[in-house]
Computed example of a mutant assay.
Amino acid sequence: MYKIKREIIRLWMQMAVKYPNLIPAIFSKYIKMMWNDNQRRCAEKEYRTVNFDVKADDLKKDTQILDLSCTSGFGETVHPDVLFIPGGFGEFGWKYVMTLTPLPRGIEYFENPEFLVSHDGISWEIPCGGKSPLVDAPFDWVGYNSDPTLFYEDGIVHMIYRRTEYKGNGADVRLLVMHSSDGVCWSVPLVIMEEHHHRKDLAVLMSPTVVKLAGEYLMWYVQGSGGSFSVVRAQSKDLYQWYGFMSSMLRGMPEGTEPWHLDVIKKGKEELLMALCYQHVGNYKSNRGILFASSNDGGILWNISGKHLEPGESNFCKKSLYKASAVFAENGGLLLYYSGQDNLDHWLTVRREITL
């Protein structure tokens, strides 16, 4: 009976989204609220159990699965973005801050940004007085909030994230930015980019990442068009108004692969490093890996290095890897935070010490 009811709600929801002129607005809003409530109830019934106790001999050296069960997604998470703040952040001087999105069994409804803090980069928690998720899940609209990234400057953490709202046969896709000085009280999100696309072409404005170089903010994101994917670079003076859009060149990409999600950090004053989640052309649901690249011209030309991570090396990532976040730690070493999908479709996030 439960499955029949869920299917009926799903069909109503599709009608309300695709044919808004045929259904009164008040009824359409009610249907979308029912669908979102159904998503939450389904996950709470079926997807609560996650195993964080992975055998140590199944993981590569210097790799540790993070227990992120404090999040609203029951511990299953993707798309981490981590910053190390030498002077500490907020009242308690947190050295590490992170955003990511829950994704229990791939349910988009739960893909809404969280904000976590840590003193050591291993044990994470929601700051006292903070909320989970930080960005509310859809209420009377259908879609999700994804791909968050963090930027820190002058005691302020800025979060940029991507909102997808389904409308008709397509969706409005927007990038929004909000900021906080303590990780608890956040500004009202403001739209900084937006596009409308058909449902078959919604892989746009994906995985933004920001650095400041020579007094200017630079952003990179992945853009899909006509079934192909590229990295776009943009410039800004204030994080709100963006211009100078251009395609970045990825020199040395393995044959038959394309960019999917990315993270960019500074190494010294001028060199940039990229952790790039790639996918095989035509295989968009699994078998993704992680490459590394560097740039010395402000992120216009990227040179892919020989080092890469592939799925299947451990049980937690048998099916696929996902977006990675690189960060220079307190000891100067390079850390990589990334997620993996196991054979049961659970998504877990790990911390790994790497050398390039």
Rank of each mutant, 00 (worst) to 15 (best):
V135P: 01
L68W: 03
N331M: 09
W186P: 08
L250H: 07
L213P: 05
G299L: 04
G121W: 03
D154R: 11
E46F: 14
L301T: 11
S180L: 01
D81Y: 12
L11P: 01
F292K: 07
K61S: 13
Y2A: 12
M253V: 10
I23N: 04
D81C: 12
M13D: 05
E44K: 12
L335S: 09
F229A: 07
E330M: 11
P148E: 05
Y278L: 01
L348V: 01
Y240D: 00
C277M: 10
D172K: 00
V54L: 14
G299T: 03
E258W: 05
V191Y: 00
T257R: 08
I304S: 05
G129L: 08
S320C: 09
N303I: 10
S72R: 03
Y144Q: 11
I304F: 02
P259L: 05
G256V: 07
F151N: 06
N343I: 13
E255W: 03
I265S: 07
H197N: 14
S207Y: 00
F151S: 06
M159N: 06
L321S: 05
L291A: 04
T149N: 08
I126T: 12
G170H: 03
K237V: 08
T71K: 00
Y30C: 10
L250Y: 07
V327Q: 09
V97P: 08
L301V: 14
T149A: 12
E46Y: 15
K45E: 15
L83D: 08
E271Y: 01
F92D: 15
D53A: 09
N38F: 06
S305G: 14
L213I: 11
Q241I: 11
G143D: 09
Q341L: 15
A203Q: 11
W347V: 01
G90V: 06
S180K: 02
S123H: 14
H346S: 09
V17E: 09
D57E: 14
H198Y: 12
R233D: 03
S187P: 03
L176P: 00
S181I: 11
P113V: 06
S146W: 07
T71A: 05
D342F: 07
G88Q: 02
F74K: 11
N303H: 10
P259E: 02
N296D: 12
V184W: 03
C317W: 02
D67H: 09
S305H: 12
P104N: 08
R174H: 00
K60H: 06
D120P: 10
R351Q: 07
F115T: 08
S146T: 13
E153G: 08
A203W: 10
L348A: 05
V135A: 04
W94V: 04
E114Y: 05
A214Y: 06
P20S: 10
A324M: 07
L335H: 14
W302A: 10
S247V: 09
N287R: 13
L273H: 10
K319Q: 11
S146K: 10
A234C: 08
S305M: 11
M274D: 07
G87A: 11
I65S: 08
D58C: 03
G75C: 02
S207I: 02
L190F: 02
V117P: 08
Y30D: 12
R163V: 05
S230F: 13
K285N: 13
L66G: 08
Y161K: 01
G183I: 02
A56V: 13
